[in-house]
C-alpha cells in the first residue's frame, strides 16, 4: 500500500512516516500544497493523509482540484481546525475522513484501515425500485429519470419504508411509526394525507389501498 503524507510540520511528518512505515505502508511525504497536489494528480496512491494548513496551496484547495479532476483517491484530512463547519467543508471538498489534531498514531491507523475498507465496498446511498430513485443523503426522489424532487422527513421515511417493503401489504400501524415527528401530534388522518402526497409524487399506480388491511406498494398483478 502506497501512501502520500502532505504535512508542513517536519517533526510531525517524520513521525507519521515512521509510524505508517512500521505499520507496513510505503510512505512518501511532501511539505508543500502545490507539490502535493501535483504528486497526487500524477502518481497512484492508495490513500493520502492531507493537512489543511499548507504553504502555497491550502489542503482544501488541493482536495477540490483532485476531486474536480475525477481523482477519487481516499483522503484523510488531519487538521487542527475542528469546528463543525470546517469538518463539513472538508467533507464537502471530498474528504473521506477527518481527523483532528492532536491524535494518537493508532487512531490514524484505525481510520486509515476503515477508509481503505470502505472504498473497496462502496456504501450505496441510493435506493431504486420501479423506476423510482431515492437519494438517502439528499432526501430527494427522482421518478423515471425526471426532475429531482425534495421530500420532507416524513415523506422520505414513508416512501423508503414502502420501497424497502415493495410488494408487501403494510398495515396502518406499521406505517404510522414513520409519520410522526417532534412537532406534530399523532393523528389517524396524518397517514392518509401523507399517502396522498406520495401518490402525487410517485404516481397513482404504485401505492394501492387495501381495504381494512392497509397499503400496498408495487405494480398491480
Amino acid at each position: 500500500m502506497r501512501l502520500l503524507v502532505i504535512e508542513d510540520d517536519l517533526n510531525l511528518s517524520l513521525s507519521l512516516k515512521m509510524d505508517l512505515g512500521n505499520a507496513g505502508y510505503v510512505v512518501e511525504t511532501t511539505h508543500d500544497g502545490e507539490l502535493g497536489e501535483f504528486l497526487g494528480a500524477t502518481e497512484h496512491y492508495d490513500a493520502v493523509i492531507l493537512d489543511l494548513g499548507l504553504p502555497r496551496m491550502s489542503g482544501l484547495e488541493v482536495l477540490r482540484q483532485w476531486r474536480q479532476a475525477d481523482n477519487h483517491t481516499p483522503v484523510i484530512v488531519i487538521t487542527a481546525r475542528d469546528a463543525w463547519f470546517e469538518k463539513v467543508d472538508g467533507f464537502k471538498a471530498g474528504a473521506d475522513d477527518y481527523l483532528c489534531k492532536p491524535f494518537h498514531p493508532q487512531e490514524l491507523l484505525a481510520r486509515l484501515q476503515a477508509v481503505l475498507k470502505r472504498v473497496h465496498n462502496l456504501n450505496q446511498a441510493k435506493l431504486r425500485v420501479y423506476g423510482i430513485e431515492l437519494d438517502e443523503d439528499e432526501q430527494t426522489v427522482t421518478v423515471d429519470g425526471s426532475n429531482i424532487q425534495e421530500l420532507t422527513a416524513i415523506e422520505f421515511r414513508l416512501l423508503r419504508y414502502f420501497m424497502l417493503n415493495a410488494g408487501k401489504v403494510l398495515s396502518k400501524t406499521q406505517l404510522g411509526e414513520h409519520v410522526y415527528s417532534e412537532s406534530t401530534e399523532p393523528d389517524s388522518n396524518v397517514l392518509e394525507v401523507y399517502v396522498k402526497r406520495l401518490r402525487k409524487i410517485v404516481g397513482n399506480d404504485l401505492i394501492h389501498t387495501r381495504r381494512s388491511q392497509g397499503y400496498f406498494f408495487g405494480l398491480k398483478s
Partner: peptide, 16 residues
Amino acid sequence: AHALKSPMTLLLRTTE
C-alpha cells in the same frame, strides 16, 4: 490553540 496542536500530537506520539 492551533499552534499547540501539532506539538501535542508529537507529545502523544512520544508516549508510544
